[in-house]
Computed example of a mutant assay.
Amino acid sequence: MEISYDVVVIGGGAAGLGGALALARARRSVLVIDAGEPRNAPAGHIHNYLGRAGTPPGELLAIGREEVTGYGGEIVTGTVTSADKVGDGEFRVTLADGRAVGARRLLVTTGLVDVLPPDIPGVAERWGRDVLHCPYCHGWELRDQPVGVLACSPLAVHQALMWGQWTDQVTLFLNDANEPTGEEYEQLAARGVAVIDGAVAGLEVRDDRLTGVRLRTGRVFPLAAVVVPPLFRARADFLATLGLATTEMEMAGHVIGTAVAADAMGATAVPGVWVAGNVADPKAQVIVAAGAGLTAAAALNADLIAEDTRLAVAGALSR
């Protein structure tokens, strides 16, 4: 190991930078390792972030990086392939290029991957632009415009009803799957949500802008955006070397993804390892992820202070 730090933060998004900032200000030696693949990169702006509404995601990260390094934190680009316990209170973090660094504690903020339905052409290419899932992120910008919800999961009715808060032009495309119950049909009708049978063949795009959905019958429905429910998969495979696995996350009895289990402060089942942001909470928006990074950093720093105190007392007694 070339260098050892008090804390290595794995992941440089809002949660990682939020945690690193607090730790650097606490005068801890901190290294942030970031693969440079932010989940929200396709989005034009961040919303619901008090004081930063409308900020481009890349700009927020640049501001955060400058703040972290301004307090003495270090940031490197790289992908972590494994993390191992190498002694009492010490971890080794190995990167894909062979580099390795040591750490007394780990803060994992690697986020998640949106696993999209593979059978609809164009969905992945337009994800985060006009193929969306979160009305709190994009609803205001699409207010009063036609929005289509693709029934790719049992939660499609829930999504259609939610989007109805922002626009009264919501259409649910059943896509030959996930037939609503009688009660759900009543709810959709009461909220003015149109329901369309038939399989979706693809998206209509003109001048790099989504214009509608095309059924296999050839019928086209004009739309400003399409809503697709992804499966949220935590980026945490490298933690397997520590014996830390992901668990399934459910909503209304349906699996919506995976996450690393942790307590309210971000501590995992492995002593010395904390998590924050979407790797632990798939539902967390950017401002929540940043706050979770701060919360985990404070708990982590308290743990280090307790260890430093024990070592100081042991050293005093041995003299």
Rank of each mutant, 00 (worst) to 15 (best):
T181S: 14
T181C: 01
T181M: 01
T181F: 02
G182V: 08
G182N: 08
E183L: 13
E184I: 00
E184A: 05
E184C: 04
Y185L: 08
Y185H: 14
Y185C: 09
E186Y: 05
E186T: 13
Q187D: 12
L188A: 03
A189P: 02
A189S: 13
A189L: 06
R191E: 08
R191Q: 14
R191F: 13
R191W: 11
G192H: 09
G192P: 02
G192Y: 08
A194S: 15
A194K: 11
V195I: 05
V195H: 09
I196V: 15
D197V: 02
G198M: 10
A199F: 00
A199Q: 09
A199N: 01
V200K: 06
V200D: 03
V200Q: 08
V200L: 07
A201T: 00
A201P: 12
G202W: 14
L203G: 10
E204S: 13
E204R: 13
R206D: 10
D207C: 03
D207G: 07
D207E: 15
D207K: 14
D208K: 14
L210Y: 09
L210S: 13
T211L: 02
T211Y: 07
G212C: 03
G212D: 02
G212I: 04
G212K: 00
V213G: 02
R214H: 04
R216W: 14
G218P: 11
R219W: 10
V220S: 13
F221N: 03
P222F: 07
P222C: 10
L223K: 02
L223D: 00
A224H: 13
A224C: 05
A225C: 08
A225G: 11
A225N: 05
V227L: 05
V228C: 04
P229A: 14
L231P: 00
L231I: 09
L231F: 15
F232M: 07
R233Q: 09
R233E: 04
R233S: 06
A234K: 03
A234G: 03
R235V: 01
R235K: 12
D237E: 14
F238C: 09
F238Y: 11
L239C: 05
L239P: 01
L239F: 10
L239K: 05
A240H: 15
T241F: 00
T241W: 00
T241D: 09
T241V: 09
T241I: 08
L242S: 06
L242N: 06
L242R: 08
L242Q: 05
L244F: 09
A245I: 00
A245F: 13
A245V: 07
A245C: 06
T246L: 01
T247V: 15
T247R: 07
T247N: 07
T247K: 04
M249R: 14
M249Y: 07
E250Y: 12
E250N: 10
E250D: 08
E250M: 10
M251G: 09
M251L: 14
A252P: 01
A252W: 12
